[in-house]
Design a protein around this nucleic acid. Structure first.
Lengths: 231, 231
DNA sequence: ACCTGAACACCGTTCAAGT
DNA sequence: ACCTGAACACCGTTCAAGT
């Protein structure tokens, strides 16, 4: 009873011992609130009520910390594939799970495009691949087909991360921001930028998430319709 | 006469005056040789035989410098569209031009995915868009269709940049590196990673450039085959 | 107008010293 | 074993002072 009480004593100042878990959690919080450039060993140390050196006992350095934070977010966002779902539906669910995770934690996008050995992404790659296989793509084209989905997803991730890195005042009101870019487009030279001008309205009204899904559908259509070399 | 002589005295130590152009050229050289983290105002100043402060007279700061360097490379790589080319061929040429530019200057990839207001990329966007239009995509779907191509291209750019950022010793021999990753894949759990294992051989033998083009073809196939909502 | 280079306010990382 | 925090070797950027 007193044991339980001491374990749940509430928001006391008594510091819990440092641990990799606590450090990573604090890092994620910092990344979410102040962005990638705000993740500083000094800021992190302050938040954990310790010195910067202490962190190095549990984590090798800044890049390992970023990787661990990414891993934590992606693990939490892991998608289970419904048993009765079509390959198409499963790919959509998978891609949407990633999209939403990156929407909540834009720095993950930067991390994903910046990490070539995508260890935390390997399960995603596997799942995407299985759906490609289920779509009837010839074996010799499996790698190409997943790569297309893969690169598209990472491309969107990177763009989202870039948007989130922009100065806050400019992007605080997303629709206002899109509107101003659309205005810029609409003001371009009528001959040299005829297409961009014509599409300014669609930029203004587009929904990132829906657009992302349309791209997925498009690539899936391409994967099934493409005349793959028999292999 | 003495004036001319003094202007063309040859490779003397006499320093040319600083200029935005010279600074950007030196920055590109530095980025190509020592990578993005090697672009330092001190290193740049040394190369230009001046102090770090001098650079700020011509350039607002580091990020403007990176943008200017990217702009310089992309302008040099600008592709003219052949007059008799099909939309499909033009998209391929455009995408390939970008791919090769990023292959030569991987830091450009980082820069492109990191810059949302893609001013130096606007002409590329316009060209891609015109081809989409020429493919007969309904007007209401123009934006979605270019976006898919766009995000795919930027995704590949980001991946290439990430690969180039990896520690040199590991990636000096590209085929050896791919081989080792393929070995890792082949050693994965047979049940949970059946697809990834099956595709390890294709990873080992794949050609980045060809793979990239396959993805472009795939998306173009999707764009033409997709059942766009009429609009 | 343009350049110089010391100085400022930061970083990530290390390490002797503590407990 | 784990933590502390000063110190080191860097950064980008500023700015008084020079020419």
């Amino acid at each position: 009873m007193s044991g339980m009480a001491s374990r749940t004593r509430g928001p006391e100042r008594r510091r819990e011992p440092l641990s990799r878990e606590r450090i990573v959690a604090a890092a994620v919080e910092l990344l979410d609130t102040v962005g990638e450039s705000g993740l500083t060993f000094r800021a992190l140390a302050e938040r954990l009520a310790t010195g910067p050196g202490a962190i190095y006992w549990h984590v090798a350095g800044r890049s390992e910390l970023l990787a661990a934070a990414t891993d934590a977010v992606l693990t939490a966002a892991a998608v289970g594939d419904g048993p009765d779902a079509t390959p198409h539906e499963t790919v959509r669910a998978l891609a949407l799970g990633l999209f939403d995770a990156i929407d909540d934690h834009p720095w993950v996008g930067t991390q994903l495009v910046g990490t070539p050995s995508q260890s935390p992404m390997l399960p995603v790659f596997e799942q995407l691949g299985r759906q490609v296989r289920a779509l009837g793509v010839p074996r010799g084209a499996w790698f190409s087909a997943v790569s297309a989905l893969w690169n598209y997803i990472l491309g969107v991730a990177g763009q989202n991360a870039a948007n989130a890195r922009m100065p806050q005042p400019a992007t605080a009101d997303r629709t206002a921001y899109l509107g101003s870019v659309a205005d810029d487009w609409a003001a371009l030279d009528a001959d040299r930028y005829a297409f961009t001008r014509a599409v300014a309205g669609q930029l203004r009204e587009h929904d990132d998430r829906a657009e992302f899904l349309t791209g997925i559908d498009l690539i899936l259509t391409g994967i099934t319709a493409h005349r793959w070399p028999t292999g």
